[in-house]
Design a protein around this nucleic acid. Structure first.
Length: 331
DNA sequence: AAAACTCTCAACCGCTAATAT
DNA sequence: TATATTAGCGGTTGAGAGTTT
């Protein structure tokens, strides 16, 4: 990796460092000495204003850089080392639901940072997904999008790709239309589990944070698959996720955030949220799942506040002619 | 052995939202 | 209310390590 760049400085940040002088701030890799300073300061004083921390710790760094260094590297609760197969699978699953919301994904993998997960996704998982698709996709959209009820009809059914497809189907909602493989898959084959949100009935009291939808899995349990041996690319031994929701998803209680919004979020009322039923055309005959249990929102479900990610619901719903009745329950 | 290429990941950049003044 | 500052996020970059040719 990079060696610390001792000569790299920046001067654009104004620092009230002895009377408003512009301090030359270092950029680039952190030296062990800087790490030690920051670590010592944080251990002694705890977290505060990052600009103050940078200054008081005697670091020629901007607060932003200190914050990043602490969060991504120095924090004592960080987990080190390679991602476990469980973590890998959970990341894929969460990404299929949350899209590129790395911080939210990271929040559900204790000890992992958003940056770490983002890098892992971009460097490893994305590639695997792509390869899985390449090895199997000779199909076109001529395959009926609504035939997703049968994996036998899946154009991508072959090896690992089958699993990915099924997984994304279950996840249903993909937040990121640009970079997530599931977006194209979902577009092509339909999203059997897309909830219907009545966005015409906006009510600011009814904002459901996606935070409340996605469970934080207990990695001490099997997650979504029966067997997780070997690398991600080797999904042969894994139980497909479309079936897999009958597996042990350990879902501790979740907070429902009624207040926060972000630039990525769009408020959508689902006060009367429901799921379209397409009667027989659904997949959940493999094991229905009560959404309350899946998402861990319990009694937050009805009448709670919902905030979903940046979804083009109109577009999605326009493209989906039939949706299954969503009746989740965990075995 | 060395050049070319690929991969990994730490760190930066630019942006928005929240908060302080 | 307007402006400045801070926190936090996702996208991107690029150095260095590893691998292939």
């Amino acid at each position: 990796m990079r060696k610390p760049e001792h000569n790299v400085v920046m001067g654009k940040e104004k620092v009230s460092n002895g009377g408003g002088v512009k301090a030359k701030l270092r950029k680039g890799l952190w030296s062990p000495e800087e790490d030690e300073k920051l670590m010592n300061y944080m251990v002694t004083n705890g977290q505060g204003c990052w600009s103050d921390i940078a200054r008081n710790a005697g670091l020629q760094r901007c607060g932003k850089s200190c914050r990043l260094r602490w969060i991504n590297y120095l924090r004592p609760d960080l987990k080190r080392g390679a991602f476990s197969p469980q973590e890998e699978h959970l990341i894929i699953h969460l990404h299929s639901i949350l899209g590129n919301r790395w911080s939210q994904i990271a929040a559900r993998l204790p000890g992992r940072t958003d940056n770490e997960i983002k890098n892992f996704w971009n460097s490893t998982i994305k590639k695997r997904l792509k390869n899985a698709g390449n090895t199997t996709t000779t199909t076109t959209t001529s395959s009926s999008p609504n035939n997703s009820d049968s994996s036998d009809h899946h154009p991508l059914k072959a090896g690992g790709a089958t699993v990915f497809m099924q997984e994304y189907e279950v996840a249903g909602v993909c937040m990121d239309s640009s970079s997530s493989p599931c977006s194209s898959l979902a577009t092509q084959f339909g999203n059997p589990f897309i909830p219907l949100m009545d966005h015409h009935q906006h009510n600011n009291n009814n904002i459901f944070d996606i935070n409340g939808v996605v469970p934080m899995f207990n990695l001490g349990h099997e997650v979504g698959v029966e067997t997780l041996g070997g690398a991600l690319g080797d999904y042969g031994a894994m139980k497909p996720y479309v079936m897999g929701l009958e597996n042990d998803l350990s879902v501790p209680g979740l907070e429902v955030n009624n207040n926060t919004t972000s630039n990525y979020d769009k408020n959508i009322s689902v006060n009367d949220a429901h799921y379209l039923s397409n009667n027989n055309n659904n997949n959940n005959d493999h094991g229905s799942i009560k959404v309350e249990e899946l998402v861990g929102v319990g009694n937050h479900w009805q009448g709670e506040t919902f905030k979903m990610g940046e979804l083009d619901w109109e577009g999605l719903l326009a493209n989906v002619t039939s949706l299954p009745y969503l009746d989740f329950h965990l075995e």
